[in-house]
Structures are given as C-alpha cells and as structure tokens.
C-alpha cells in the first residue's frame, strides 16, 4: 500500500523496497532519544534523496521520452530568447532609464528560468498529484506515514527533465555577466558577496513560488477538483516575468502594489536579478527596503502556506474507499 502511494505510476519493486527501508530507518530514528534537530534534518534529507533517486531511476527508464522533454523545454526557452533578441533590435532598454538594457535584461530572464525550472522540477508535479490525491482519497495513505505530511506531499517527485532549462539559464547568465563585465561603460563585476546575496534571494523566490503553489493545490480540498490550478498559477506568475518598472504607470500601480505586497510574486525575480545586474553601491533606499521586504514576504508566505495546508487537511474527508 505504502509503496503504491510513493510510486504511483509504476510498480518497481526495487524502489519500493529501498523506500520502505528508508522510512523504516527514519521511524527508528524518531524513537531514539537523540532525535534532535540535526538528526531530524538528516532523516528528512535522506528521505528526500531517496525520492530524488527514485524519480531519476524512473526518468531513466524512459530515456527517449526524457530526452525529448529536455529538448522541447529548451526549444521553448530558446524561442523566448529569440523573441527578446528581436525586441532589442528596436530598443536599447525595457522602459526609459530603468537600467534594463540587453545584458541586464537577459540576466533577469536567466533568473526567471532558474526559478521556474526549480519550481517545475520540484513542485509542479507534486502539487498536481496532491490535487489528484485529494480527489481520489489517496491522501489517506500519506497521512498515515510517520513523516510530516506537507514534506511528503511536496517532495515526492522530482521531474529531472525540467532542470534542462536551468542549464540554459546558466549559459545565458554567463553570457550576460561576461557582457556586463567587459563593456566599456560602467562595467559590473561579479563578487562573492553579490553572488551569495543572489543565491539567497533566488532561494527566497523559490520559497514564495512554492508557497503559492502548495496553497493553490490545497484549495482542491474545498473545490473538489482543481483542473485549472496550473493555468491559474501560470497566469499569476506571468506577472513576475518582467521587470517591475514596467508596471510603474498610472494604470499599473495598483497591480504593482497587489503583486508586491498581497501576492508577492514581483519580488521573486526582481530582487535577485537586480542584485546581480547592477553594482551593489550605490543603491536607492527603496531597493534595500524591497530586499528586506522580500525576506519578510518569504517568511510570511511560508507560514501562510503551512497554515492553509493544515486547514485543508482538517477539512479533508476521504473520498471513495
């Protein structure tokens, strides 16, 4: 039963045995008095690594399919690159005096692809499956496992092929960073400080996206079925794919406020991309404030999504048998 749930599509005896073993080991670890924070973390990490390995094994079973997924998602990304190259044939910058010239903007896009590929690899398959588990009543089995349910639901599957866009992002970020560092006028160099800040804020961005996704998925408890979940998520996060300056018009300011403070998708890409695209000093006050807000927003989103998830479990009444 447990194996069925953990490996929903295929019955690979090997995987399930390994997984059952890991869970049993983690259960044993829980009972020991030394179940300290560090031990707990190690336990969760081990379970996660098992999930990741199982997913990779499953992906490698259908290698041609895997390869095709990689190629098609890279092709979509390259078409987008083509579109923006086209746009920069007509303009030097996105928005007057915003500083989003070609290299800066492609750095922005690379950040979009980093975050999106991470979300697509780790969370979207799980969120989709969560909705499905609620609808079919399969969530019962997840609730019985001796591990945090949200963790189990959120990390069970990894779609490795989605990480191909991460590689494209790396390539484009490399080219743009090179362009920024070698240009004649006010070059921008990568420093260890900016890089670590960048990585930190990319992490915050991923956490915000995760919170949004898992909250949306949890609503299927109340809605019964949530087919347009992915659509809705796509339409909302679509706003995060552009520099926030473009919304700075009389019409756009309400949207700017809404997507910065209520559903903070605008800080997801804007904050990290901005750190890398410009020298750290001098910065306007509002940029620092925005960065601080991004950290606060991440915390709030995580807490809120945890709360929504808990509430949804409380309202869950097992479907079917």
């Amino acid at each position: 039963m447990g194996a069925e749930l953990l490996i929903p599509n295929r019955s690979q005896a090997d995987d399930s045995r390994r997984l059952t073993g890991t869970l049993a080991a983690s259960r044993a670890a829980e009972k020991t008095p030394a179940g300290s924070w560090a031990a707990e973390t190690r336990r969760y990490l081990r379970v996660f690594l098992t999930f990741a390995r199982n997913s990779l094994i499953r992906d490698m079973t259908f290698r041609a399919d895997f390869l095709f997924h990689c190629i098609s998602s890279v092709a979509w990304t390259l078409m987008n690159v083509g579109f923006y190259l086209l746009v920069f044939r007509f303009t030097m910058m996105i928005g007057p005096d915003t500083g989003w010239g070609r290299d800066e903007f492609f750095l922005f896009l690379a950040t979009v692809w980093f975050i999106n590929s991470l979300v697509q690899a780790f969370f979207i398959p799980n969120a989709n499956e969560f909705s499905e588990l609620i609808r079919t009543g399969g969530l019962d089995f997840a609730l019985l496992k001796p591990i945090d349910t949200q963790f189990l639901i959120s990390f069970r599957r990894v779609e490795w092929s989605s990480l191909s866009n991460f590689a494209v992002g790396l390539l484009i970020a490399g080219i743009s960073l090179h362009g920024l560092a070698t240009r004649a006028e006010s070059p921008v160099y990568l420093t260890p400080l900016t890089l670590s800040l960048y990585l930190f804020f990319v992490g915050c961005g991923v956490a915000i996206m995760y919170s949004l996704m898992i909250s949306l998925a949890a609503t299927s408890v109340w809605l019964g079925r949530n087919q347009s979940l992915y659509d809705f998520w796509f339409y909302i996060t679509n706003f995060s794919r552009y520099p926030m300056e473009i919304y700075n018009t009389p019409w756009g300011r309400p949207l700017l406020g809404l997507f910065t403070f209520v559903i903070p998708v605008l800080v997801v890409v804007n904050v990290p991309a901005r750190i890398l695209a410009r020298p750290l000093n001098p910065r306007a006050d509002w940029e620092w404030q925005l960065a601080v807000w991004a950290v606060i927003a991440t915390g709030l989103c995580l807490i809120a999504s945890r709360w929504v998830f808990r509430q949804s479990l409380k309202s869950y009444r097992s479907a079917s048998s």
Binding site: F90, G95, P96, G252
Partner: peptide, 10 residues
C-alpha cells in the same frame, strides 16, 4: 505593459 515600456524607452 511590456510594450508600453518598450515604446516609452524608444
């Protein structure tokens, strides 16, 4: 909004 920003910039 994107095209508005592009036209503005040009």
């Amino acid at each position: 909004f994107l095209w508005g920003a592009i036209f503005d910039a040009v």
